[in-house]
Simulated scan of single mutants.
Amino acid sequence: MSEDRFADVGRGIRLCYRETGDGPPLVLVAGLGQQLLSWPAGFVDLLAGRGYRVITFDNRDAGLSTHADYRPPSLGAILAGRTPAHAYHLGDLARDTTGLLDALELPSAHLVGASMGGMIAQTVAAHHPDRVRTLTSIMSTTGARFVGRPRLSTWALMAAKPPRTREEAGDRAVRLFRHIGSHGYPFDEPGVRARATAAWDRDHSAAGVGRQLAAIYASGDRTGELRQVRVPTLVVHGDRDRMVHPSGGRMTQRTIAGSRLVVLPGLGHDCPAGVWPRLVDLIADHARAEADDVAA
């Protein structure tokens, strides 16, 4: 297992990251409330085996990275657009990502983001295109109203009281991912529980999730800025996603010029082992096509 390392990325933010493999850098950006552990080790190893230096990291307010110290707004305030003036937004999380590239002395990298991580990677591509070799946006959306929204049943699960113990963290993760996960693939309850309890051991502060969710909603509709994205872009979405409706992926593809959409049957809002070979092929082939274009 790769070891935890730390990098100062500017503006008082310190990120925890891990590296696996050698080759062109490929950065995996995690989703809402997720740690670098959300990328299963077997999936990371498959990508590394395709010849990439795979970098995973905890976004700010998750895992072992810097946590903000202000109280997160309530869910009602977030949905109503009432967030503190000093709160961060997706642009700040994007700058954290480029700051990590700076700390690792990487001029650019392939960016792969899932869910909120897809939003962060999209924002990097829009504002810092020279840092992005290719963009792969997975199970994500543009922030446009009425697309990519969670089901009401998903909101109900997200609004539940945060876990108070390691065991409760595992139970909550199992309930959530049974609902939003890939109903077209076998459900790996032991794996879900193991990642959730390992994440609890690293960090079990619930406030960061609220601040990250506020950052998403404070960033609003990003359609205009995504129309400016010119980096090679692959959009991947599952047709069974109850967290980010598949309309979010379709809107992303329509918004980013020249992008390609792949809809994976049976995939929900997770990364089950059954989809790893297909997803790794998609990411690696997309990255390799950019390298071939540069070499031509």
Rank of each mutant, 00 (worst) to 15 (best):
G118I: 02
A30E: 03
A159E: 12
R211I: 04
T134D: 00
V263D: 08
P246T: 09
A85F: 03
V244G: 03
P163W: 06
T66D: 04
V235K: 03
P107V: 05
S137D: 12
P163L: 08
A144T: 01
Q228T: 14
P40D: 03
Y70G: 05
A218G: 12
R178I: 01
T154E: 10
T136R: 01
R5D: 11
V174R: 05
P277F: 10
L234Y: 06
G81F: 15
P150R: 05
D96N: 08
T66R: 02
H269G: 09
D130F: 01
V280D: 00
R260E: 14
G23A: 11
H110G: 08
S65R: 06
A159D: 04
P162W: 03
I256Q: 07
G266K: 05
L106K: 03
R178K: 13
D239K: 09
V236F: 04
V112N: 04
P246G: 14
Y70W: 11
L75A: 11
W155S: 10
A77M: 08
G31R: 00
P24N: 04
E105Q: 09
A284W: 05
C271Q: 06
H286R: 08
Y88A: 06
L264R: 00
L264C: 13
R260C: 07
P265Y: 04
H67I: 05
A199W: 01
E189Y: 06
G117S: 11
G113F: 01
R82Y: 03
I120Q: 06
A103K: 02
R175T: 09
A87T: 10
L282R: 07
L234F: 07
V147C: 10
A144L: 13
Q228V: 01
A30P: 14
A291C: 03
G143E: 07
S140N: 03
P129Q: 08
V112D: 04
A215Y: 01
R193L: 10
T123N: 10
G274K: 02
F146S: 12
R50S: 06
R82E: 15
Q228W: 01
R178N: 09
A80H: 02
G191S: 12
G220N: 11
G21Y: 06
P190M: 14
G33A: 09
L135T: 06
D241P: 13
A62S: 15
A198H: 01
G42W: 08
A85L: 14
